[in-house]
Amino acid sequence: MKEQPLLKVRNLNKVYGRGCTQCLALTGPAVDSNICPACNTIIACAGIDLDVYAGEIIGIVGESGSGKSTLIKCLCFDEMPDAGEAYLQNFAAGQTNIFAVSSQKKRWLRNHRLGIVYQNPHLGLRLDSSCGGNIAEKLIAADWYHVGKIRTRAKELLKKTKLPLERLDDLPKNFSGGMQQRVQIAKALANNPPLLLLDEVTTGLDVSVQAQILDLIRQIQQRLGIAMIVVSHDFAVIRMLTERTLVMKNGRVVESGLTDQVMEDPQHAYTQLLINSML
């Protein structure tokens, strides 16, 4: 029997603006724009189909403004898509469109089934709360109430993400960029999510810290079997971590396939341009 995807997304659309009947026809990679000339609506994502299988890491690449982060924001309910459906295999037997459920259920899904790590730690952490407090926040949201157990779990997560245990009660605002990303990853892992969304998590970090974070992501996937969607504009990061890749431009997926195939035998003109522009 064919394996069912953990997450199935179909025809996801997200626009910023009032929209018109010509928006989709007048935008996209063919015209190299995601702004509708008729009504000035921005087409952030259009017609996105995506399958993520249990335990795999899938990459999403594309230039700034291509719609990568909007897609991630829609998947973790930071933004609501204007159209489309998504199904999580471990929610209502994969039969219920998660975009159509109540806000309460969306919050439950986010707290119990998803982990999110943002490029900017300010978005994922309370920098004025202790490192342990940040992890506790996620655990309490996932119905953990025993203080002792929360503290034990927080220590476990610090160990997993290679953070010194003695920093448990320190404030993340006093941490380096790499350490803040580790706290974010620890917080995202707190509820044992089957799916982790990582949005440009190594961007802006110096190369040695970047290498540590990449190694940590790989270890998490290998040891915990968590599926991940990794968004990056860095092809080297995608190549190192993923088996499958989607290439986005102007809010559309222009190419998808095995990562090595996308990198070495790109089919779309835009992907060829991206690959040829790599240093």
Binding site: V207, A211, Q212, L214, D215, R218, R239, M240, L241
Partner: peptide, 12 residues
Amino acid sequence: YIAQFLRVLPQM
């Protein structure tokens, strides 16, 4: 597949 060049994460 044994490629001519080894590609590996920097800290693996």
